[in-house]
Each structure stands twice: as structure tokens, then as C-alpha cells.
């Protein structure tokens, strides 16, 4: 099992290395968001307050609106990390479908390699990519805060070692969860168009029902309620609590991580059930 997994994982990483364009493409969108959207869309609710509002009150308004973040960009940058973890997993299923079209998957299916190795190798390589990109985006947003003239992610809380671990776990779990989901789509579907239709159909509502991009203060109550269960929100909450303090959140990061783990476990369970059927030795 381990040898098969090792060989197939090596193959997946070779593929990533041979196709740097794919990595670059998945980087492009978040980069545009970070560089253009985030810089241009820097809303400030305190600006609408009547003149003479005490600075402390104005500050509180800001904190309420951005759930503890000092400005929109900081709030949004944490959301972008979640966003990229989701969008960069799109390739994972598409790659399976292309491998089917090119006969490569048939070769793998012809070998006695267990389906767990086939699934696992793609999951490892396919979630490594979004994890790496999420950290890249995080690093970039932090860097921007130190470049004059640019908005960036400003960390306003004391970040502990545990906080760093929690951020790491949130990113890993979120990437793993969506990688599992999209990989399952890729294994079950045979036509690229169907795959992309399914993924887009899912992607947009997932992102738009999360609080990754909307300022918390602008969200209607019903959307806030829905967003609490959204896995992207769960991961982003962990980031925001770590970077800006947990004062505005009903639960600590541990609870959100648990929620994320629940999502991942459920999806993994469904995936294992469906994939082990789809990849049975004899179809």
C-alpha cells in the first residue's frame, strides 16, 4: 500500500512541477483580489459617523463592523486565505478527468494499486497546492502592511504559538476538505464540462454564503446565521480570532476547528464510500 501510494504521489508532484502554469493560474485570481479589489474596496464605516463622534466610539464601530479587524483589508485578507484554499483545489478533479481522457487513468486502474492509494496520492498532492498557495497569500497580505501606500493585513492581537498552529490547522483542514470534495467529483465524472459545471455551481454559493469577503457589519442576520456553518467561514474565523482577537466571536478557535474537522470527516466518509465503489477492481 505505502509503495503504491509513494509511487503515485511522486507522479502527482512531478505533474505539478511539469505544469507550473496551473500553479500560476490558480495564484492569479487571489493575487488580483489582493492587489486590486482589496486595495480599491477599502470601505470605512467610521467615515459615515456624524462629526464629533468620540474616537473611542468610532473605533468600536469599526471593530463591530469588521469583527475585530482594524480595517476592511485586514478583514478581507484573512477571508482571501480561505478563498484561495477553495479555488486552488479546482484542478484536483479536473486532472483526474484529463487523465481519464488521455488513457493514463486506465493504466493506473489496470494495476493492482489499491483505490486508497489512487485516491490518497491525488489528495496529498492536490491539497498541498492550495495549502501552499494559502500561506503564500497570507504572507503577501502581511507583507503589504509594511509597504507604504498599500493596504495590508495588520495583526492587532498577540499571536501565540498555539495561534500559529491553529491557523495552520484551519488552512490544512479547509484545503483537505475541498480537495476531498472535488477529487470525488473528478473520480465520479467523466466529462470536463460536467465537472466544471458542478464545481462552479458549488464554488460560488460556498464562497458567497461565507463571511470571507463581506464585512460582517454589512451582512443581514440571516446570512450571518448561514455563514456560521459554512466551512470557509469556520476556517476564516480561526484566522481572524488569531490575528485580531477573539472578543467579537461567540466561540474560541478550538470550536471552529472542531466544526471544520466535522465537515472534513463527513465529506471524507462520503468520498470513501463513493470512491471505493467507483474504483472497484472490476467496474
Amino acid at each position: 500500500m505505502l509503495r503504491e501510494l509513494g509511487a503515485l504521489t511522486r507522479r502527482e508532484f512531478l505533474k505539478i512541477r511539469r505544469n507550473p502554469q496551473a500553479l500560476f493560474t490558480s495564484l492569479l485570481l487571489p493575487l488580483l483580489y489582493l492587489l486590486l479589489f482589496g486595495q480599491g474596496f477599502n470601505i470605512n464605516p467610521a467615515a459615515a459617523l456624524p462629526p464629533g463622534t468620540p474616537p473611542l466610539v468610532a473605533h468600536q464601530v469599526l471593530l463591530d463592523y469588521f469583527r475585530g479587524a482594524p480595517n476592511y483589508y485586514s478583514y478581507f485578507a484573512a477571508g482571501m486565505v480561505g478563498f484561495v484554499a477553495v479555488t486552488a483545489t479546482l484542478f484536483i478533479g479536473a486532472n483526474v478527468i484529463f487523465d481519464k481522457l488521455f488513457g493514463i487513468f486506465k493504466r493506473t486502474r489496470g494495476t493492482p494499486a489499491p483505490s486508497a492509494a489512487v485516491f490518497g496520492s491525488r489528495l496529498i498532492a492536490g491539497s498541498a497546492q492550495p495549502i501552499a498557495l494559502a500561506f503564500f497569500v497570507l504572507g503577501l497580505a502581511l507583507l503589504f502592511a509594511h509597504i507604504p501606500g498599500l493596504s495590508g493585513l495588520r495583526v492587532t492581537a498577540q499571536v501565540s504559538a498555539l495561534g500559529v498552529v491553529e491557523v495552520f490547522l484551519a488552512i490544512v483542514l479547509l484545503s483537505l476538505m475541498f480537495a476531498t470534495l472535488f477529487l470525488t467529483f473528478g473520480i465520479l465524472l467523466d466529462v470536463p464540462q460536467t465537472y466544471f459545471a458542478a464545481v462552479n455551481l458549488l464554488n460560488l454559493p460556498v464562497l458567497l454564503t461565507s463571511d470571507a469577503l463581506y464585512p460582517w457589519g454589512s451582512m443581514p442576520v440571516w446570512l450571518r446565521t448561514i455563514s456560521q456553518y459554512n466551512p470557509v467561514s469556520l476556517a476564516v474565523n480561526v484566522l481572524r480570532e488569531t490575528f485580531f482577537g477573539a472578543g467579537q466571536y461567540p466561540f474560541g478557535p478550538g470550536v471552529y476547528l472542531l466544526g471544520l474537522l466535522g465537515w472534513t470527516a463527513v465529506l471524507m466518509g462520503i468520498a470513501i464510500f463513493l470512491v471505493s465503489r467507483a474504483l472497484r477492481p472490476l467496474e
Binding site: 503504491e4 509511487a7 503515485l8 511522486r10 505533474k15 511539469r18 487523465d99 488521455f102
Partner: peptide, 21 residues
């Protein structure tokens, strides 16, 4: 054809060997 075009001939063979354990 089932070989992986993005891999070298050697890599194709080595990966195949690995899939047989």
C-alpha cells in the same frame, strides 16, 4: 496510449513499477 506525456519514459516506468508494489 496510456503513457503519461508529462513524465519521461523512465519516470513512467518507475511509477508503474511502484504501482505494483
Amino acid at each position: 496510449s496510456t503513457a503519461d506525456g508529462d513524465l519521461t519514459g523512465r519516470e513512467n516506468l518507475e511509477v508503474a513499477a511502484g504501482t505494483y508494489g
